[in-house]
Amino acid sequence: MENVDLKMRNVVFFDGVCHLCNGFVDAIISRDPNHRFLFAPLQGTTAEELLSPQERESLDTVIYYEAGKTYHRSAAVLKILSGLGGVYGVSRIGWIIPGFIRDILYKIVAKNRYSWFGKRDFCRLPTANERSYLLP
């Protein structure tokens, strides 16, 4: 995939060793029949290309990249869910809650995600069906 094309795609960056984060990726892939989203670990080369060094160091947040703009934490989750359409469009209601309030809950979960959900020893290896979704 050429760089120009990649910069125009919707990329979800996640902590590649976090079980919760990988579960979120699995859930989105299974609900994305139109292949709207691509996924890349924050520890990977795609993150190096599209994100700032500070963003790549923030392993405690999901980052959503959409046409050159990045969304973090709860804003990223809301953008991703609403992008799935259908019943997930209801997530747009979440925007009425101020971001700093939404992010309080997000940060609590992020801080405890390894102890609550576990951690992998290495980044996920894609299945054959996932290969077209996952970037390095």
Rank of each mutant, 00 (worst) to 15 (best):
M1A: 12
E2H: 06
N3W: 01
V4C: 05
D5P: 00
K7P: 08
N10M: 02
N10P: 03
N10V: 04
V11W: 04
V12P: 06
D15S: 13
D15I: 12
D15R: 03
V17A: 07
H19F: 00
L20N: 02
L20Q: 03
L20P: 02
C21W: 00
F24T: 12
D26S: 14
A27C: 07
I28T: 07
I28E: 08
I28N: 05
I29C: 11
S30W: 00
R31A: 15
R31K: 13
D32G: 05
P33Y: 06
N34I: 07
R36K: 11
R36I: 15
L38D: 12
A40S: 12
P41M: 05
T46P: 04
A47Y: 00
E48N: 12
E48A: 14
L50G: 13
S52E: 09
P53D: 10
Q54W: 12
E55N: 05
E55V: 06
E55A: 15
E55R: 04
R56N: 11
R56F: 08
E57L: 14
L59I: 12
L59G: 10
D60V: 13
D60T: 15
T61K: 05
V62N: 07
V62W: 02
V62Y: 03
I63L: 12
Y65C: 12
E66A: 14
K69V: 13
K69M: 08
Y71V: 14
Y71G: 15
Y71T: 14
H72Y: 09
H72W: 04
R73V: 07
R73W: 06
S74D: 08
A76C: 08
A76P: 11
L78M: 06
K79A: 14
K79V: 09
I80C: 15
L81I: 14
G83S: 13
G85Y: 14
G86D: 14
Y88L: 10
Y88Q: 08
V90M: 06
S91F: 14
S91R: 01
R92F: 00
G94Y: 09
W95E: 12
W95Y: 07
I97W: 06
I97H: 09
I97P: 06
I97C: 10
P98I: 11
P98R: 05
G99R: 06
I101S: 04
R102M: 01
R102T: 01
D103A: 12
D103V: 07
D103S: 11
I104W: 13
K107I: 12
V109F: 11
V109L: 13
A110T: 05
A110V: 04
K111D: 02
N112F: 01
S115E: 06
W116D: 09
K119A: 02
K119Q: 09
R120H: 02
R120E: 08
D121P: 00
C123H: 03
C123R: 02
C123Q: 07
L125G: 10
P126I: 06
T127R: 05
A128H: 04
A128N: 03
A128S: 06
E130A: 01
E130W: 02
Y133H: 01
L134K: 08
L134Y: 10
L135W: 00
P136H: 04
P136K: 05
